[in-house]
Amino acid sequence: MYSLVDRLWRNAKKAAGISRRITTHWLRHFFASAGLSKGVPVTDMAEWLGHRDPRITHQTYAHVMPDAPERLGYLMDAVFTIQTELNLPLEFEAVVEAA
C-alpha cells in the first residue's frame, strides 16, 4: 500500500509533531523550487533529483527562476565595479592570465 519511503516519512513527521499534510512528492518539489529560486545551478539540482538531463529539471522548474537574468546582471555589475570579489576556478584564472 505505502512505499518504505512514505512510511518512513509519515513516522518522521509524526515524531517531529508535523500535522500538515506534506507528502514526499511535495517535499521533493519544495526542495527543488527553493534551491533553484535561490540560485543553485540547474545542473547540480538535476543531479540531486536524479534527472538524467538537466533540461528536464529546467523545463519542470523554470517558473521558479524568472529573475535569473536579473540576478546575473547584478552579479556582473558587482564584479566589474569591484563591489564584490569573485573566486574563479583555477582553470579559468589560467585562461584569463594567458589572454
Rank of each mutant, 00 (worst) to 15 (best):
I56D: 07
H51P: 06
D77N: 04
A62V: 12
P54F: 00
D67S: 09
R55V: 08
V64P: 05
H63V: 12
Y74S: 04
G73R: 15
Y74C: 03
G73H: 13
Y61W: 03
V64K: 08
L75K: 09
M65R: 13
V64Q: 07
I56K: 03
V64H: 06
D53I: 06
T60L: 09
H63L: 10
G50W: 08
G50I: 09
H51L: 05
T60R: 03
A62Y: 10
G73L: 06
R52F: 01
D53P: 01
G50P: 12
L72G: 01
G50E: 10
D77C: 03
A68K: 15
D53Q: 02
R52S: 14
I56P: 02
M65F: 06
R71F: 08
R55K: 11
H51D: 12
P66R: 14
L49Y: 00
Y61A: 04
G50Q: 08
E70T: 12
L49M: 10
R55A: 10
A62K: 15
I56T: 15
H63I: 11
L49N: 00
L72W: 09
D53F: 05
A78E: 08
G50N: 09
A62E: 11
G73D: 12
E70W: 14
P54N: 01
I56S: 13
G73Q: 12
D77Y: 13
V64F: 04
T57Q: 01
A62R: 15
D77M: 03
L75P: 00
Q59I: 02
A78Y: 06
